[in-house]
Simulated assay, not measured.
Amino acid sequence: MESLVETLTDRQFLVAVLAAISAAAIVFTFGAQFADGKDMKSRIRKVASERERLRTDELARLRGEDKKAGTNARRKDLIQKVVDKFSLKKAFADEQTGLKLAQAGYRGPNAVMTYVFLRFVIPLGVFLFALFYIKFIFMPEGMLFLQIVYAFGAGILSSYLPVILLTNQIKKRQDSIRRAWSDCLDLMLLCVESGMSIEAAFQKVSNEIVSQSPELGEEMTLTTAELNFLESRAKAYENMAKRINLDEVKSVMTALIQSERYGTSVGTSLRVMAEEGRNMRMMEAEKKAASLPPKLTVPLILFFLPVLFIVIMSPAMITVFSTPGPA
């Protein structure tokens, strides 16, 4: 033990240990620099390879988009030729067609062209399919005249399919906007009373309301663009009221137009409209609640009462039929 203590306290031993530690530190320092240099080079190579990969992917994506754009352009040219050749816009479109398509969320001249093309192609395709089905499967031995008449009737009925689908799309879009309109008015009121301009309020609300109703967010964004670029705000409000075509939206847009024209407070108008919107929302909920009992009457009679009668009368019927009669 004493020899170990003497060795650890020996001056030459301590000098040797410190020299070994210093040499190890120097070697580690220089080695770490070389290792960092190698790591840096490897990272640079990885970054360069990743950049090259991203560039290649982007070029491939652009080529794919170019091909897709070219395919879409050829498809549009074909549709345009068919529409112009047969004058389909005169036959299937009127002044309200573009407005109805905008109310359904389809905008631009291509929407009208595609709509009239479908109204022409769908009945023709259904007629050919129905004629093939009736001729070779349903009535192979029937009269040709009757087969053609049945197929023609199917084609006539299918001509209303685009109109029905467009009407349903408009209704779905209006229902989504109606559900979120009260919250939209409350948000607009908060934004206006906080000092925002009407354009900034529309922009802010469009970003917030899109999670609840993407359709309303889209309309608010489009109205924001029109407020910034059109000469008159009243025109932007009128366009929004026409595109949505809801009474509650029309009343709010009318109030904003009057505020713009006569210089009244926008916040006051929005507060009144928001209060009316909440009242209408409550009345709609009460109306739905009041309509539940009549709607439940038929299911109650058909499904609940028969089961109740069976449960009540089954024991008595079992007792009656299981009791032996008089000899």
Rank of each mutant, 00 (worst) to 15 (best):
L165I: 01
I44D: 04
L157V: 11
I134W: 02
G105K: 03
N168V: 06
F138S: 13
A151R: 02
D66G: 13
A154I: 02
A73L: 09
R63Q: 11
G70K: 04
D66Y: 08
L166V: 02
V126E: 09
A111I: 06
G98R: 14
R53S: 11
Y133V: 09
L88S: 06
M143F: 08
D57Q: 15
K85M: 05
E50G: 12
P162I: 00
L128N: 10
P123S: 00
A69N: 11
F120C: 02
Y160M: 12
I164C: 07
A180Q: 07
I122Y: 10
A180S: 15
A111E: 07
R43F: 05
M143Y: 06
N72E: 14
V163H: 12
I134N: 04
S49L: 05
R63P: 06
F127M: 04
I148L: 15
Q96P: 03
G98M: 05
R119W: 01
A73T: 12
T56G: 13
E95I: 10
A180V: 05
G108V: 05
L118E: 15
M139F: 10
A104K: 04
L118R: 15
F92V: 01
S176F: 03
A73G: 10
L59V: 00
G105Y: 01
T97C: 02
L161T: 10
I137N: 08
L59W: 00
Q147F: 01
D183G: 14
L59I: 01
I122E: 07
E58S: 11
T71A: 15
Y160R: 13
I137G: 07
L101Q: 09
A130N: 03
Y106T: 00
G155A: 13
N72A: 14
V47S: 14
L54V: 08
